[in-house]
Design a binder for these strands. Structure first.
Length: 311
DNA sequence: AAGACGAAAGTGGTTGA
DNA sequence: TCAACAACTTTCGTCTT
C-alpha cells in the first residue's frame, strides 16, 4: 500500500487487509487506522479539517478558508531600514534641536527592530527546514506549529548559536513531536533530514535545557501501533504487546530504560507468542535499536513474567 | 544460510562528590 | 570539574534451526 493509493481513494478508504470501510482518522498521531483489523494503513495523513470552530454563520463566513490561516511557520519578510546616527536629515541639513528627542526614540526602536530582523533572517532558513522535514515524515500541522514556536524561543534565547540552522530545526521538531505526544524516534528524524542521530540529540538536549521544557519520556505504548504496522503484525499481536508492556511496567522493568527498547522487546515476544514471528533483526531495524538491546530486554521480561518461549 | 546468543570493548550522557 | 556508573551500541565468534 503506497501513499499515492491511499490519497487516490480519499473519499472511501478500504482497508487493504480486510476490505473493511470502517476507517478512522487519528489526526493527533497522523495515522489512518482500520477499526476492524487495527492496522495502521497510513501514518502520514494530512489533517484537512479547519483548525477552528464556527459558532454562527457570521463567524463561519469570517473563518472560512480564504487566504491562509495565521501561522508560526511563515515569517515576516519585511525589509528593514537603517536610521543613521548623524543628526542630519536626508538632505544633509541639520535636524533642529526640538526634533532630536524624536530621533532618539526612532533609533531606539530601530535597534529593537534590527535585532528582530536578524532573527527573521534565521527563521527564513529554519522554517522551511522544519516544514520540509515534517512533510517528509507526514507530521500533522500542530506539530509543525509547535516546532516553529520552540525554534523561535530558542533563537530568542540564543540557543541556536554555534549550531547549524538545519540541526537546530530538526531538534525543535523532535521536541515538538514529544510535546504533542506524537513520538518519533531520533532515527526517523535523522533519516528525513540527512543529519546524524547524535547531532539532533545533542541539540535537542541543549534546547530542552535552555528553554526549561519539562519532558517526560514517552511511554513505550506510544510506539507500538506504528511499529506493528511497519512489521505487518495483526491486531492480536498488537494487543498482546500492549499487555506485555503493561505487565513489564508493573514489574518495574521500564523505568530508566529506553521506552523504544521495551516496546521492541515486547513486540518480539508477542510476535513469537502469536505465531507471527519476526526476527530480532527485523524488529531492531524498524525500532532503531540493536538486536542486543532487544535481547537484553526480552530476557529480563520473560525472566520476571514466567513466559515460556519456544523458538 | 539465517537467526539467535553472549562476551567484551566502546560511546555518550548523567550523577554526585 | 572529574570520575564512576548505567544503558546502549558495535563487533565478533559460536551455536541452533
Amino acid at each position: 500500500m503506497t501513499k499515492k493509493e491511499t490519497q487516490k481513494v480519499e473519499e472511501i478508504i478500504v482497508c487493504p487487509e480486510c476490505g473493511s470501510t470502517h476507517i478512522s482518522r487519528d489526526y493527533t498521531r497522523a495515522e489512518l487506522i482500520c477499526e476492524g483489523y487495527g492496522l495502521v494503513i497510513d501514518d502520514g495523513i494530512i489533517d484537512q479539517r479547519p483548525e477552528w470552530r464556527a459558532f454562527d454563520s457570521d463567524q463561519r463566513e469570517k473563518r472560512s478558508r480564504v487566504g491562509s490561516p495565521m501561522t508560526y511557520t511563515i515569517h515576516d519578510k519585511g525589509l528593514s531600514t537603517v536610521i543613521g546616527f548623524k543628526n542630519t536629515d536626508s538632505y544633509g541639513k541639520s535636524i533642529p534641536n526640538r526634533n532630536r528627542a524624536q530621533m532618539y526614540r526612532l533609533r531606539k526602536w530601530q535597534k529593537k527592530i534590527r535585532i528582530s530582523s536578524t532573527m527573521e533572517k534565521n527563521l527564513t532558513n529554519a522554517l522551511p527546514s522544519i516544514n520540509r522535514i515534517s512533510s517528509a515524515m507526514g507530521l500533522p500541522r500542530t506539530v509543525r506549529e509547535t516546532a516553529a514556536m520552540i525554534y523561535r524561543k530558542a533563537v530568542l534565547k540564543k540557543l541556536t548559536r554555534g549550531r547549524t540552522i538545519e540541526s537546530a530545526a530538526a531538534a525543535a521538531l523532535y521536541a515538538a513531536c514529544r510535546q504533542c505526544d506524537v513520538p518519533r524516534t531520533l532515527e526517523e528524524i535523522a533519516n528525513a533530514s540527512n543529519l546524524s542521530r547524535k547531532e539532533i540529540g545533542r541539540n535537542y538536549r541543549a534546547i530542552v535545557r535552555g528553554l526549561g521544557l519539562k519532558m517526560m519520556p514517552p511511554p513505550p505504548q506510544e510506539y507500538v501501533s506504528r511499529f506493528c504496522s511497519k512489521l505487518k503484525l495483526s491486531n492480536d499481536a498488537q494487543t498482546k504487546t500492549l499487555e506485555i508492556i503493561k505487565e513489564a511496567t508493573n514489574q518495574e522493568i521500564v523505568s530508566g530504560r529506553s521506552p523504544i527498547g521495551i516496546a521492541a522487546a515486547s513486540l518480539y515476544i508477542a510476535s513469537v507468542l502469536c505465531g507471527e514471528r519476526r526476527s530480532q533483526c527485523e524488529i531492531a531495524d524498524v525500532a532503531g535499536v540493536t538486536e542486543v538491546t532487544i535481547r537484553n530486554r526480552y530476557k529480563e521480561i520473560i525472566g520476571k513474567m514466567n513466559i515460556e518461549i519456544t523458538l
